[in-house]
Write a protein that binds this DNA or RNA. Structure first.
Lengths: 148, 148
DNA sequence: ACAATTTAATACGATATCGCACTAAAGTCA
DNA sequence: TGACTTTAGTGCGATATCGTATTAAATTGT
């Protein structure tokens, strides 16, 4: 396969990267000062998926190094948006739970972010988006497997 | 539009974010130690698009704050991969040029990165990718306009 | 059972990113 | 032309991200 073909993949990932930067800047502007998407994402995950998971499980879910997750969780805990309890199954580990304040933070963030997502929704119909999502998920899954 | 519909857009941007993290980690592992995709991207832009552009133009092209671009360029200049000259049209400004060493760096990086992109290409045919790219570019363009 | 290996979390250091504020130059407009 | 506003770049400080190394607990293999 020649360079021109690979160029397509380069362009693809370049678009992905720029969209990520733009959406992150857009959404972070709507969060309370000092909070980033990484913080919101963890709170959202604790609600949408399940809380009580360990930091390592969370790190893998978000595909970040575990040191990064340690840091992100420390910020959330400092603001009492999460709390941790010992892991009854592993004394090295601990379990992460969202607090009532954390739930309230997430609810408000969703309210504050909604208008921007709505603007995207108005411009890009759900049916086309819903066709892309599974394909993106495939690529994400492939990359996740590929690195292991 | 209710929350379930916006949920689709949330999932979409979540997939985008994770793919970005994965591909970045993958490609940065192939760059010389201490270099990041942001460095490579600038060098690539100087070749693919044009060099002689100002830092501000580059910052806008990559959708990063100008302070971030200042820092990225300082790293490249410290390694003599780029050089800057005064902007003849604006004494506040300067123009960024890639050096021979910068070109060589980019060439080698492309060679080192190719196998990973090739692996993606083997799994995901070019025709499906080429259908997605224009749509992603539309979304990128919309987000870019939207923030202004 | 116990030595060797693996794993969970974190401390630490290096660098990246970004917002704010500042300086100098350019542009505006009366 | 001179005052005001805008713009280009950077210094600085705060925080995020991530790699390496460390500690303690769990697991493995014999």
């Amino acid at each position: 396969m020649d360079r021109q073909d690979l160029g397509l993949y380069f362009v693809f990932f370049n678009e992905i990267g720029i969209i990520e930067q733009l959406i992150r800047a857009l959404l972070e502007a709507k969060l309370p000062k000092g909070f980033l998407i990484s913080h919101f994402s963890v709170l959202n995950h604790l609600i949408r998926v399940k809380d009580g998971q360990t930091p390592l499980v969370l790190a893998r879910a978000f595909q970040v190094p575990k040191t990064t997750m340690t840091h992100t969780l420390s910020v959330l805990e400092r603001h009492a948006l999460i709390e941790t309890r010992p892991n009854p199954k592993d004394k090295r580990s601990k379990c992460v739970f969202i607090t009532a304040a954390g739930e309230a933070f997430r609810e408000q963030a969703i309210i504050d972010i909604a208008p921007d997502l709505q603007a995207v929704a108005n411009r890009f119909p759900a049916d086309k988006m819903s066709k892309m999502v599974p394909y993106l998920a495939d690529i994400r899954q492939f990359l996740d497997d590929y690195r292991n």
